[in-house]
Nucleic acid binder design. Sequence first.
DNA 1: TAATCTATTGCAACTGGGTTTCAACTTACG
DNA 2: CGTAAGTTGAAACCCAGTTGCAATAGATTA
Lengths: 150, 150
Amino acid sequence: MPLPQTEVPGRLQAELMSRGLRMTHQRRTILSVVETAKQHLDASQILRQARRLDPGIDRVTVYRTLGLLKRHGLIDELDLMHMQGEKHFYERRPQRDHIHMACLRCGKIAEFESDLFDRLKGQIQRECRFHIVVSRLEVGGYCAECRASN
Amino acid sequence: MPLPQTEVPGRLQAELMSRGLRMTHQRRTILSVVETAKQHLDASQILRQARRLDPGIDRVTVYRTLGLLKRHGLIDELDLMHMQGEKHFYERRPQRDHIHMACLRCGKIAEFESDLFDRLKGQIQRECRFHIVVSRLEVGGYCAECRASN
DNA sequence: TAATCTATTGCAACTGGGTTTCAACTTACG
DNA sequence: CGTAAGTTGAAACCCAGTTGCAATAGATTA
């Protein structure tokens, strides 16, 4: 399932600047990588891509920028069931939360939006009086293809 | 009056043995720690508790045993929104999955069972033809107490 | 436009959770 | 009891992520 391309390029930059943050060359580079990514990238992949645009960039700057984006709620951090070590993956925060399904056999990641998920979060907020800032639903299992070819 | 004991002691042990796994002294110790835990423990806490019962136990044995229990679906691994570094937490797999709510202010972890959650998983299995083996729903936000005292 | 102030960067060293390797040791089983 | 295969501990290792600090570069002001 490909990631939907629903955002105007430059939106993350605009968001950060509107919050009064200093816009450096390195940040612009990292933001553009995250913004135009077609799949979920981990920090080292983001570093590699950013270095193609600005070879001097350091991995610590990538980590710091990802932390910044996370704190501002502009990106989400995913674990994807820790199928490939302990690395984390990142994606622009979507308008509507979705579920990540990780196939334990082929490693494919699929996404799924569901009204039930939205209702569940509403129930949590109401019944537990818990104000949700970030949510993450990940499931591990076997996708249709892998179940068939078994 | 004794505390309510939700599980029969030794259930994890019995499960593992019934699957033909070798029952060593170290495993029995680690299993009893996990089984009687009153909160979510990370690997180093499990090690510390296990060493009170068997001082010679090594952390590598704890990691291996936790991996074993995970592979057999007897415990679940939690991230709890990575609020305290990158450590993982463990709990016996419950009969019915629950949601973990992590308060970003006071750090408290609350649990919540929901019919909507069960239905959502059913929807994923049906509509995505995805066979769920493990699921993890974690939300970060602010609990009722922290919202009040702000 | 230049001066200034302060956030940000890069580097190197470090941290910490988790894994690998391998010889020595146990456990289960006949 | 003897054996074979699974398990353990110790040390070294791996790797994602963080910290301390001097140098640098945005933003702001004059």
